[in-house]
């Protein structure tokens, strides 16, 4: 008898949760967890100006410029910058469902470390989808912090970052790499907003650091 009462009470709670959940689903924005369709893989790279790493002395002290470009870096001698044209870029460097990765160490359709660095040099926008404390401890130089959860928890802050990137810009999103879902979640949000050239770095931030590529510390300006 007692068990029956407890069980019936539990079923009532489950029923009420389904009822409220259904009403919530009807009035809330649709939830989308589908795989992100990242569009035209052959679109030319769009971003800011080509960039070079900041000097070691400036690491962790400079803040990324408004358009993601270090003004001083533009004045550097051109021969220090290796810039590939869009035609020279391997097509599998863009997110493409049909692309076959040339580097087995990254998931299919994602950027290898070298491809990511090439895009970084060309001035593509980089977005860090990890946790804020991880971003503050160290992130790819000029990267913005934009995890998908920020759109729910602090949308003003999220759209402040979004507004700093043109919708047609090439945006490379990274997290810890491998099976990390955070990049895909951020890509989905940016796709919904209207960004058309989204690419995901298959290698993680630690791989970037291990390769000696430019990083900096500190929070988002």
């Amino acid at each position: 008898m007692r068990c029956m009462q407890i069980t019936s009470g539990l079923l009532s709670i489950i029923g009420a949760a389904f009822l409220f959940g259904t009403v919530h689903a009807l009035i809330a924005k649709p939830v989308d967890i589908s795989k992100v369709d990242l569009g035209d893989a052959n679109k030319p790279v769009v971003g800011a100006e080509p960039r070079v790493p900041k000097t070691d002395a400036s690491k962790g002290t400079e803040t990324p410029p408004e358009n993601g470009v270090d003004e001083t870096s533009i004045d550097e001698p051109a021969e220090q910058v290796v810039i590939k044209t869009p035609e020279e870029m391997p097509t599998d460097a863009r997110i493409d469902e049909n692309a076959s990765g040339i580097d087995a160490s990254v998931p299919e359709g994602t950027l290898t470390l070298q491809q990511s660095y090439d895009l970084w040099e060309q001035g593509a926008y980089f977005v860090d989808a990890r946790h804020e404390h991880e971003f503050e401890a160290g992130h790819i130089e000029y990267a913005f912090w934009l995890p998908s959860t920020l759109f729910d928890t602090d949308s003003d802050r999220a759209f402040a970052v979004v507004d700093r990137m043109p919708p047609d810009a090439t945006v490379v999103i990274y997290c810890v790499g491998g099976e990390c879902d955070a990049s895909h979640n951020t890509a989905r949000r940016l796709k919904q907003i209207g960004f058309s050239d989204l690419r995901i770095m298959g290698a993680g931030y630690d791989d970037w650091v291990a390769a000696g590529f430019p990083t900096e510390e500190g929070g988002q300006p």
Partner: peptide, 14 residues
């Protein structure tokens, strides 16, 4: 997954 995302929080609340 979407159904669980809507139901679990309400179950926790109730």
């Amino acid at each position: 997954i979407v159904m669980a995302a809507f139901v679990i929080p309400w179950f926790e609340l109730i």
